[in-house]
Each structure stands twice: as structure tokens, then as C-alpha cells.
Amino acid sequence: MGIKTFQQAISEALALEMERDERVIVMGEDIVGGSGADGEMDAWGGPLGVTKGLWGKFGDRVLDTPITESAFIGAAIGAATTGLRPVVELMFIDFMGVCFDQIFNQAAKFRYMFGGKAETPVVIRTMFGAGLRAAAQHSQCLYPLFTHIPGLKVVVPSTPYDAKGLLIEAIRDNDPVIFCEHKLLYTQEGEVPDEAYTIPFGEAAVVREGEDLTIVTLGRMVHRAVEAAEALAGSGIDCEIVDLRTTSPMDEDAILESVENTGRLVVVDEANPRCNIATDISALVAQSAFDALKAPIRMVTAPHSPVPFSDALEDLYIPTAASIEAAARELAEYRS
């Protein structure tokens, strides 16, 4: 046990699973030698150094790929069907577009179309989210797209502890898993056991208990919600925060139980507002917990716009603790 970063937690999960199961391989761009590394092996470890050190321990089970997402994602899926358990890193979630057939039409469908006889134990690790001044093509929150597809499991961790336990669960899972890492969380610190452990999919974490209002959120927004809840507590508004951890499967019970208790719901989702996780949860609550609601549901999301390159506009684009707080206050003061 010790204090570790989100990045270390992921790295540790990969190393432990590679140690435990020789079928586990990792592949991706720049994860071994890397750009500018002048041929030196293990120089880079991916754009954020997450896989650094693995090549020294596991050699050829760590594969550098060309910059051809469509090819290496397809290769990883194919390798999974032959019995390997690849963890493939697709640097930015924004580049998934060129791999949709491999992911949506192949990996996600094999188990179903082969009558349960085929397994595709592949994990696609990918960075998402705004805030790194990386502009419109490197900053999106595309987990709603994958959540939409039956046959995929989608993980969006918010803490180092969850990242490690959920990644090990993902690697041991026999279905394709899209593992989404917010790029501003890699330096987040928290207590992480040294040993391997697994967190089951479809179990949300209640990171704060409260009686007045429920905030359902995920990924980086969990931390902004906690900030907002602390400010609201000063005004006597007691928020419960539900961190989804996985969007597919989704822990509907945890959401409904909380809203049935508080009667007020704010959903915070960094994704664009149409057909995102916030709309999905709002529909669930409107359909299944309507009688419990004391106020309308509020969604706090990014606007329906590409992520701006301008620093000032990007800061405005991302939901903030202040925007979450304002939505919560509005509901707390709402009288029907």
C-alpha cells in the first residue's frame, strides 16, 4: 500500500497481469522505443510514460506499432480471438473513428454472432477529455459512442485505486473493453494496494453520502463534483455523489436508490450534450424514479461544439465546480 499516481496504478496493473498471465501482451504507438528515442528501447513508454519499464521486463510481449490505428486495433482484436489477451493503447480516443468497423462490427459482435462460442478478450486503453490545450481532434469525450454499442464494456475511472482494480478486471474479462483514461487524471494521487485486485464492472462508487441532492458523474468530473459539494455543504446543501466507474454495464440501482432518497438529480458529463451519459441517466430516472423527483433534472455538460483551441474558450467549454454548484443550487431552491 502506498500513495501512487493514476499513471503508476495503470502501469502496475499492466505489469502484474503480464507477470501473472503470459497471454497478456501490450501494444501501441511509442510504447517501447518511441519517437525521437533514436532507436533506444524502452525510451518512451507511451506519450505519458504509462508503459515505461514493461519492455525491460517482458521484452517482445510489448509491441511498438506503426501509426496505423485501423491496422493495429484490428490486429489486437484478431490476436484476442486466437487466445492472447492484448491490451492495446490507442493514444487519443479521437482516433477511434478509423477503427469503428473492427470495434463495432467485429469485436463487439463475435460472441453474439458465433452463438457464444467466440471470446474477444481485448482491452483498448485510450486517453480522452479536454483541458490539455490539444484542440478539437485530441480532446473529445467519446465514451458515449462505445456505451451505445451492445457487446462492448466501457470503463471510465476517476481515481488511482479504481483505475488499477478496473484495469485488472478488464484484462481478465473475456469481452472487449474500452478503457477510457482522462488525460488530466494521470497525476492524481491516492492509496493503491501493491497487490492485484479487481473491481467488478457495473458497480458505482458513492464517493460522498448526502441527503438533499444526487450528483451522478464520472471520470474527471467526479473531482469537480466533490469540489462543488464541499462548497454546497457550507450552505447546508448535502450532496450525494455517485461515480459511475463503468458506463456499460451501468449501475442503475445505485443511481435510482440515491435519487429515491434525495429527490433531486444533477448529472455531470464532460461529453457533448446530445445522446451522452447525462441524457441516458436522465431518461432512466425520469422513467423509473419519476415519483421521487422534487425538481427537474439538471444536466451539466460541455456545449454542443467542438473543443476550442483557445485556452480561454476551452476553460469555458469544460463543466466547472461553479457550474455544478449553480445547477445544484437551482434544484435545492426549486419549489414546484
Partner: peptide, 15 residues
């Protein structure tokens, strides 16, 4: 909730 979480964290460890 914290007590349940602590027991779960123990039970989740490999072995």
C-alpha cells in the same frame, strides 16, 4: 458505507 467498502477492498485482493 465505508465499513462495507473497507471489507470489499480486502475481499477484492487476489488470493
Amino acid at each position: 458505507r465505508q465499513l462495507v467498502e473497507d471489507v470489499l477492498r480486502y475481499k477484492r485482493l487476489d488470493g
